[in-house]
Computed example of a mutant assay.
Amino acid sequence: MIFERINADLALKAAAIIVQAYAEPPWNEKWNLDGAATRLLELSNTPGWLGVGALEDRAIRGFAIGHPYTSASGTGLYIPEIAVLPQYQRRGIGTQLLKLLEEEARKCGFKSTWLLSQKEGGAAEYYKACGYKQDQNLRVYARSIR
Rank of each mutant, 00 (worst) to 15 (best):
F3Y: 15
F3I: 13
E4G: 07
E4R: 15
N7I: 05
N7F: 06
N7S: 11
A8V: 05
K13V: 04
K13H: 13
A14P: 01
A15E: 10
A16R: 04
A21C: 05
A21W: 00
A23Q: 07
E24M: 12
P26F: 12
W27Q: 06
N28M: 12
K30H: 12
K30D: 14
K30I: 07
K30T: 13
N32C: 12
A36R: 07
A36M: 10
R39A: 14
R39H: 14
L40I: 08
L41F: 10
E42R: 13
L43F: 14
S44H: 04
T46I: 12
P47H: 06
P47T: 08
P47E: 10
P47C: 07
P47N: 06
G48Q: 03
L50I: 12
L50Y: 01
V52E: 08
V52P: 07
G53T: 05
A54Q: 03
L55T: 07
L55Y: 05
E56C: 08
E56N: 11
D57V: 05
R58P: 03
I60W: 02
I60A: 01
I60P: 00
R61H: 10
G62R: 00
G62A: 07
G66Q: 01
H67D: 04
Y69V: 03
T70E: 15
S73G: 08
T75F: 06
G76D: 15
Y78R: 05
I79F: 05
I79N: 02
P80R: 02
E81G: 06
I82S: 07
A83V: 03
A83C: 08
L85M: 04
L85Q: 00
Q87V: 09
Q87Y: 10
Y88L: 04
Y88P: 02
Q89L: 01
R90P: 00
R90C: 04
G92I: 08
G92E: 12
I93A: 00
Q96L: 05
L98G: 00
L98I: 08
K99F: 02
L100K: 09
A105C: 06
R106L: 10
C108A: 15
F110K: 00
F110W: 02
T113A: 06
W114S: 03
L116Q: 09
Q118Y: 14
Q118D: 14
K119M: 05
K119Q: 09
E120Y: 08
E120N: 10
G121Q: 10
G122C: 05
G122P: 10
A124F: 07
A124D: 06
E125D: 14
E125P: 01
Y127G: 04
K128E: 15
A129T: 09
C130T: 03
C130P: 01
G131D: 12
G131Q: 11
K133T: 13
N137V: 05
L138C: 04
L138E: 09
R139S: 13
V140H: 05
V140M: 10
V140S: 07
I145R: 12
R146M: 11
